[in-house]
């Protein structure tokens, strides 16, 4: 399936996946982040259940300490 990840087209070798699966596939390990699917905020406790499908617009933002 094809999705848009941070405004860039990405292809995955499956029909759907949870947020947790996407993080594992992409090896995104830094934990301080926010994720939105099609504009909807996905909180941490939804990572195992929120599904990403064909055509979805996924935005992920890393938040680094310092300010």
């Amino acid at each position: 399936m094809k999705i848009t990840l941070n405004n860039r087209k990405e292809e995955f070798d499956r029909d759907k996946m949870t947020v947790t699966e996407m993080l594992e596939i992409k090896k995104f390990t830094y934990r301080m982040r926010i994720i939105k699917i099609n504009g909807r905020l996905i909180k941490k406790d939804e990572y195992d259940t929120a599904i990403i499908e064909e055509g979805d617009d996924v935005k992920m933002l890393y938040l680094m300490s310092g300010g």
Binding site: M32, R33, I34, L41, L61, L63, S65, G66, G67
Partner: peptide, 10 residues
């Protein structure tokens, strides 16, 4: 300053 607070606010 702290990333955990940034996540909480967002």
């Amino acid at each position: 300053d702290h990333s955990a607070m940034k996540v909480m606010l967002a």
